[in-house]
Design a protein around this nucleic acid. Structure first.
Lengths: 339, 339
DNA sequence: TTAGCACCCGAAAACGTTTTCGTTTTTTAT
DNA sequence: ATAAAAAACGAAAACGTTTTCGGGTGCTAA
């Protein structure tokens, strides 16, 4: 059972390969009659063009690459969902790689994608990435590039993000508006930009509302997970007895904290209010349900691919494309962990 | 800045393309001297083979396809994690598609992967898939195929699964051993095999321990999500007042049920014990923490790719490969939702 | 009749590699 | 010195497409 090729069809019909190819692509210099004949024969033999040959000839793969820090992560998997849905609509396939928050791996994977000659690359940076030479290389090779969520301001490319600072501001303000005055912050590691931005938003909200910023109320959660939340909450209880609100960098951290308070018999939100971040869907399923800030992962994925697609199209057409930065809307979601 | 090709190197060195190619691949019929020269020049020019040409020539892409029902799902994202990690080790890239539990989409995506000429395919079926002709086609084209978790017994291929029936049996037995006698089951839809198997395991456990099976204690959760769990729990409270245990098909359903009981002031596990399934990590974070059965997603992903890799290798070498079925171990994890 | 003009068609190059097989060069043995 | 053997190299085909460009028809108008 040999592969069906253009040659096959051409021989069956006694015409040239050229004509067959053109007929299938509706070139104007092929008569209606031959077009019909060719198409019929192609259907009969179940002809499928050999993508390898097409790729080689066209110098493109109709495949794009995606690098994210973690696959097993609600926010990123939502992004992935948005991306692959949109990509499929446009006839593109997506190769997914995971940097595991390692800058070194990230570099390797960029090289891998380049060597696979993907038509475009989407990336959310590892927390530790500071050297961005691998991304500059992508730009130099003129491979369309879009960054999302965890970006670097130093790279000239399109970006799809939220305003972490503003979102954190809104979250903190919500706590203040509901009556909290001693508000702690469970932040992420020192380096990642969104960890910094959320911290700054928190600080600014305090200052704007006449609350003195107290650095002893800020706890660092290195890995930003459930255990970190538990640890921070326990430490907080040791250090302070007057805190009436917590803004956690992420829902998971907030949930860790809640579980500690539940266990200790500390009432949420009566004794202490808690805000999360991301609106991970489980936030509505815990007790008490978690107030949080919505971070639109699916939307972000959609927008990311759409932007990449425009850029790839511009490259094919040889038209100019100026990078855009799109800031997606966030919104406070009030539930039962705040008053 | 033109692409560097073998031709380029050959011209620079005044030798033939053939020799350059062979030198880079350490063919024995190239002298050490020329090999060194060629390699040096290649490094200097940053030569990277054109994969499109390699693919065409070799008739393979070093790319595999993966189809799963949902990306945003803890279990499946764990599987994805295991797969892409393992694939990268072997130099393969993974194209991920999502069937959205639609049999029609699944079929389309198989066609897509075939037309992209991936070297192998891994799939977990959509719940509604009964017609398996698209998978037969994969077999006919002799594309290596491995199914995992949600499989079809009608397809002759390697399979990586857990024993759902046995796992459900163990979960139910755990409830019985802890003193429960009226045990309800929140099951999934009627069709998917794992929904059936878990139900059968539940039933068998009852019968083996002298408890009469009562079909009025079985509730169907069509979409197997949090809301389903809530609905089923509420219905259960209306229908019965003597139930002392629930085995839910999935952690999320169990969590939905717990949230209802928490709200109603029904004590878990004192008044009613609850078992989940999957050991989704959030299971340890809710109150009370959820007893469940561990379903090793990461392991499953690893094993799935490894098996596919063996099959692909066998195909290249022209050696025979007989499909294997690997059943991964599951274990009951006792937490605070059971006595 | 002949130039001009649609209208069709196909030869051939190009994309960049891999590999077979024949040829040339060098080395070894006689 | 010469034949045989071994080592090194290269021509060319092949993978299957797309696209340019140069014809060859047959028709119309002068």
């Amino acid at each position: 059972m040999k592969e069906v090729t253009l040659k096959q069809i051409a021989e069956n019909l006694g015409i040239s390969i050229t004509t067959v190819s053109k007929a299938l692509k509706n070139y104007p210099d092929v008569s209606k009659k031959t077009k019909a004949l060719v198409k019929e024969e192609a259907k009969k033999l179940h002809y499928k063009p050999n993508v390898f040959a097409v790729n080689l000839r066209m110098q493109r793969s109709k495949t794009v690459g995606l690098i994210i820090p973690e696959v097993v992560h609600h926010f990123f998997s939502s992004v992935v969902n948005g991306i692959i849905e949109q990509a499929e609509k446009k006839g593109y396939l997506v190769i997914i790689l995971q940097s595991n928050e390692s800058s070194k791996l990230e570099k390797k994977q960029i090289d891998l994608l380049i060597s696979k000659r993907v038509d475009g690359i989407m990336i959310s940076l590892a927390s530790t990435t500071t050297d961005i030479s691998h991304l500059q290389e992508v730009k130099e090779l003129e491979i369309p590039l879009v960054m999302f969520d965890k970006i670097s301001k130093l790279v000239q490319c399109s970006k799809i993000i939220i305003n972490d600072r503003e979102a954190a501001y809104k979250a903190t303000k919500h706590l203040i508006d509901s009556g909290c005055r001693r508000i702690a912050h469970f932040r992420g590691a020192l380096l990642p930009q969104n960890s910094i931005d959320r911290f700054l938003g928190y600080k600014k909200a305090l200052e704007d509302h006449g609350i003195v910023y107290d650095s002893s109320l800020v706890y660092i959660c290195e890995r930003v997970d459930y255990e970190d939340g538990i640890a921070a909450a326990k430490q907080l209880l040791k250090d302070h007895d007057d805190v009436d609100g917590i803004f956690a960098i992420t829902d998971l951290v907030a949930i860790g904290a809640i579980s500690v308070f539940n266990e200790m018999g500390i009432k949420v939100p009566q004794d202490i209010s808690i805000m999360g971040f991301s609106n991970w869907f489980i936030a509505s399923a815990i007790t008490p349900s978690l107030s949080t800030v919505n971070q639109p992962g699916y939307e972000m994925g959609k927008k990311t691919f759409k932007t990449l697609h425009k850029e790839m199209k511009a490259k094919r057409d040889g038209t100019e494309f100026t990078p855009v930065t799109k800031v997606l809307k966030t919104a406070v979601i009030k539930r039962n962990s705040t008053k």
